[in-house]
Design a protein around this nucleic acid. Structure first.
Lengths: 227, 227
DNA sequence: TGAATAGTGTCTTTCAGACAATATTCT
DNA sequence: AGAATATTGTCTGAAAGACACTATTCA
């Protein structure tokens, strides 16, 4: 019996000790579809960036450490929950982050590829299913679910985009994440009235048609994002 | 360096090993207010039910084990996230559950008390602040936040109530959780149209005024709960 | 000029909130 | 009958969806 009512502060005899692995799901929006960044391991299976928690280290710091190598210190990480280990003596903590696709496209190697992601799982561009490492499918499912749930609560959406973006690009991100198309006038009205957007005065260039106005996030925004 | 791109399946030299503690926040609605069940430890500080994860044990099973003693095997547990340990070699996983107050009132001892909970923290009935054990405040804050966020997504609300309940009681739960009063006709219309409620045909008794119709949850309900 | 998309205006529908009117039970 | 609450109906206003119309850039 290891049930306790008080704050646990001393190990019990029967309690196990575990390796704690932090795993990070990296989202991006590419060509109107939600993508996730996967890396191939030695066994040829695909997984996500991860790190082992070290003694006296905070969970968020371990997650930041796993990301810093690729994305610099500014990635916005959001915890999505704890998962059972793949091994008996492991526990996994999931995080998610989002990035503008152009940030990483240049540095992609053979070992790192984007795969599209929806409710049915992860697929390569040619439509074939990704052969995922153990436990990764569960992680991706929960990450997608959390992303959809919290899209209207945080500034997370804007991490999919460069610092200046058009309303069309922002709408495409929403559509990619939610997996459905949205009403354009309604989307514009909601977002512009929400107070989260600030016009830059600049226009898009080089698109062969009427250029869109560009916006940036208003950092001191009040209240929630519209859905 | 412990960054890895592949699925972690073997311990690295520098990785720490941790005790994994599962902590459960028990909610109840009492006299129109949201309450949480706290237990006093040896040091006189107040915390929540917890258990140590054992080797080869699933997280959800450890949480269920911590609850089974008090609530039987049927408690609905929902994970709310991972938290940094109070000790250097500890990681905590938070869960929450809800119960009808009358379920537990009879078995309360001096060591177990309800405290009211809102954004400002936990307080005793007389208004004094609860002296919480380390890390518990953070846990309660996130539990409340998760409860509010997911009140409309799950059948979690109904765990606050006995199997048969009136619309007024259900509305009181919503109001206690959200910390604000709601519009009665709108609440009725939303809930009745949602398909989540099934009339029992029974009426309340012994209240000294017009008795309310009683409802139960329709288990095969479709779609989301209204907010 | 034509193609393609940006941005806006209007109508309709849906739904929450406010308020009031009626119904039912017990004392 | 009177108190107290349940239940329902109606009006109003806010916001989303559908649709069409105008505006602007480049080839």
């Amino acid at each position: 019996m290891t049930e306790r009512r008080d704050t646990p502060d001393s190990p019990t005899a029967t309690a196990g000790r575990f390796l704690v692995t932090v795993q990070i799901v990296v989202f991006a929006s590419r060509e109107g579809k939600l993508n996730t960044l996967l890396s191939r391991n030695a066994a040829g299976l695909w997984g996500v960036a991860s790190a082992q928690l070290e003694k006296s280290e905070q969970l968020d710091d371990a997650a930041a450490r796993a990301m810093r190598v690729r994305f610099g210190p500014s990635a916005l990480l959001r915890q999505i929950g704890a998962f059972n280990g793949v091994d008996r003596d492991q526990v996994r903590i999931g995080y998610m982050t989002a990035t503008s696709a152009q940030n990483v496209d240049c540095s992609l190697s053979e070992q790192d590829q984007f795969a599209s992601l929806d409710d049915r799982g992860a697929r390569w561009a040619n439509g074939s299913k990704v052969r995922l490492a153990p436990g990764v499918s569960e992680l991706l499912r929960r990450a997608l679910s959390e992303l959809r749930l919290h899209l209207d609560l945080t500034e997370f959406v804007f991490r999919f985009l460069p610092p200046e973006f058009s309303l069309r690009e922002l709408q495409h991100v929403h559509e990619a994440v939610r997996g459905q198309s949205l009403n354009k006038p309604a989307f514009r009205k909601r977002l512009l009235q929400s107070g989260w957007l600030e016009p830059t005065g600049e226009l898009e260039t080089g698109k062969g048609f009427r250029p869109a106005e560009l916006y940036r996030v208003r950092r001191n925004a009040h209240g929630r994002m519209p859905a």
